[in-house]
Simulated assay, not measured.
Amino acid sequence: MSAIYKSEAGAREIQRRYQEALRTWPVPAEHIRVPTRQGETFVIASGPEQAPPVLLLHGSGANTTMWRSDVTTWSRHFRVHAIDLIGEPGLSAPSRPPLDSDAYALWLDDVLEALAITSTAIVGISLGGWTALDYATRRPDRVTRLALLCPGGVGRTRSAWLFKAVLLRLFGRRGVRRSARTVAGLEDLQDESVLDDLMLTFAQFKPRTARLPVFSDDALRSLTLPMLVTVGDRDALFDSADTARRIRRCVPHATVRLLPGVGHAIFGQTDSILAFLRT
């Protein structure tokens, strides 16, 4: 049994549903399996092969389907590579090397080498945002610009959500559903299928328990590339006001957007990110 799933049957069901979603990817795409030092990594490449590259790094407990609503627009202008992070419920290896190491940067080195990419823009959300920041601080010559949504490793990690989630679980399925809405920031979500997929995943998937390492002020100050950072002021996982303050102080050239009434899940940023990537 894979260490990141609760059962083999659960792993098969999650991957079956993922494969179904991949068959309805909204634009023509190439499925690429890249060998790396952490095991095989799955990449979906969309858009003109000669267009400038953009890497997409999803959040924890997710996979490339997170980008379905964005890829049609972005792939008109870029060669978009949506990557399944290792150790997450996609088609990449279940490896979870220590976060407080250069392992993820070395892993991305392997991915970029296999894709013949020398430098690229990166769009990352949550854990993917942390991964993008980690790579940009270690490999500044390989990252041209960063668009980050609720990135980890900058603002303080919140813990109050955990106690609320535990209490809500005492109320059975209804409580679990409410807990998922609260933690992900999906209280106003109208499409219930998104919540259904989230509940299926976390019923069978074992999320990471280690806290994301926090970037030092010096590490953030080393970032000279163009940056767009978008956070929601109701994020249950990260202190978004703290994220905004640190980025504004340490990376004064960055554009920081603090969205009122928005939680950890941030939607509707396709056009604003495209405008930033094309600047």
Score class of each variant (00 low, 15 high):
29 A>T: 14
29 A>F: 14
31 H>Y: 12
32 I>Q: 12
32 I>A: 12
35 P>Y: 01
35 P>M: 08
35 P>R: 09
36 T>P: 13
37 R>P: 15
37 R>H: 11
37 R>W: 09
38 Q>G: 13
40 E>T: 14
41 T>G: 06
42 F>G: 08
43 V>S: 07
45 A>W: 09
45 A>G: 14
46 S>A: 12
47 G>A: 07
49 E>K: 15
50 Q>M: 13
50 Q>I: 14
51 A>G: 06
52 P>Y: 05
52 P>A: 10
52 P>V: 06
53 P>I: 00
54 V>W: 05
55 L>T: 01
56 L>F: 13
56 L>S: 04
57 L>C: 08
58 H>D: 04
58 H>E: 03
60 S>H: 10
63 N>H: 08
63 N>G: 09
65 T>Q: 08
65 T>P: 09
66 M>A: 11
68 R>A: 15
68 R>W: 15
71 V>D: 03
72 T>V: 12
73 T>S: 15
74 W>D: 02
75 S>P: 15
78 F>G: 03
80 V>Y: 01
80 V>S: 04
81 H>A: 12
82 A>Y: 10
82 A>G: 14
82 A>K: 08
82 A>D: 04
83 I>M: 07
83 I>K: 03
84 D>R: 09
87 G>F: 01
88 E>R: 10
88 E>P: 05
89 P>H: 09
89 P>F: 08
90 G>F: 07
90 G>V: 05
90 G>W: 05
90 G>M: 08
91 L>V: 15
92 S>H: 06
93 A>L: 03
94 P>Q: 10
95 S>Q: 11
95 S>W: 07
96 R>K: 10
97 P>V: 01
97 P>S: 02
99 L>S: 04
99 L>D: 02
99 L>Y: 04
100 D>S: 14
100 D>Y: 07
101 S>V: 11
102 D>P: 11
104 Y>F: 07
104 Y>K: 02
104 Y>N: 04
104 Y>E: 03
106 L>I: 15
108 L>T: 10
108 L>P: 13
109 D>K: 03
109 D>W: 03
110 D>G: 07
111 V>F: 02
112 L>C: 06
113 E>P: 15
114 A>L: 12
114 A>C: 14
114 A>P: 12
115 L>A: 06
116 A>T: 13
117 I>S: 09
118 T>F: 14
119 S>F: 09
120 T>F: 00
126 S>D: 08
127 L>C: 09
127 L>W: 04
128 G>Q: 04
129 G>I: 01
130 W>K: 03
132 A>K: 01
132 A>M: 00
133 L>V: 05
134 D>K: 05
134 D>H: 13
135 Y>M: 04
135 Y>A: 01
135 Y>W: 07
136 A>V: 02
137 T>E: 03
141 D>W: 14
142 R>P: 11
142 R>M: 09
143 V>H: 00
143 V>L: 01
144 T>P: 13
147 A>M: 01
148 L>N: 01
148 L>V: 00
148 L>E: 00
149 L>Q: 05
